[in-house]
């Protein structure tokens, strides 16, 4: 994302320091993650200290400071999915692709995320990949699903 676009987004929010979170969310919506250079630009334009921006970008759960892989795997770890065995599914997927939630693998193939409730508890444990919901997953089924992605 180039500086002009960043500036446009910032201008849309009147360059107010109080819009920091909204500005970062909007940038991330387009850029999918927040590289350091972008954070520096935002800090300069909004007159918010880098320390404050670092905290913001790591405090709020929506922000991502590493690039996304080609496939984003969301595994629901809401309580309902948890009591229906989501932990086993998460463990299996972690072992299979070698990363923990919040990380992207070295080949940039997968990004793994867990979430608090996808609102599809009737289908739990649920995995969502690229908008497609895989329902009632057992660890073995989860493995098969993930293996299909290249």
């Amino acid at each position: 994302m180039d500086n002009d676009r960043i500036d446009q987004i910032i201008d849309k929010h009147q360059g107010e320091a109080s819009s920091l979170i909204q500005v970062l969310l909007e940038i991330q919506r387009e850029n999918s993650w927040l590289p350091k250079e972008i954070l520096e630009r935002v800090s300069e334009k909004l007159q918010v200290s880098l320390a404050q921006i670092q905290h913001t970008a790591t405090f709020y759960k929506a922000f991502r400071l590493v690039p996304k892989g080609r496939h984003e795997i969301h595994i629901c770890n809401g309580t309902s999915c948890h009591v229906r065995g989501a932990q086993g599914v998460i463990d299996t997927v972690q072992d299979l692709i070698g990363i923990r939630p919040g990380q992207t693998d070295l080949d940039s193939k997968f990004t793994l995320e867990t979430c608090n409730c996808l609102g599809r508890c009737a289908l739990g444990p649920v995995i969502e990949i690229e908008g497609k919901t895989h329902s009632k997953m057992s660890p073995a089924e989860a493995k098969d699903v993930i293996k299909k992605y290249e």
């Binding site: 200290s49 880098l50 320390a51 404050q52 670092q54 905290h55 790591t58 405090f59």
Partner: peptide
């Protein structure tokens, strides 16, 4: 650093049990 020196060379990062202090190297 933030309130008296107005430099913010050091800040917090993360939340919950992962919260820690972190210097901003550039500053």
């Amino acid at each position: 650093c933030a309130e008296v020196k107005k430099k913010s060379a050091v800040g917090f990062i993360n939340s919950g049990v992962r919260r820690e202090i972190s210097f901003v190297p550039e500053i």
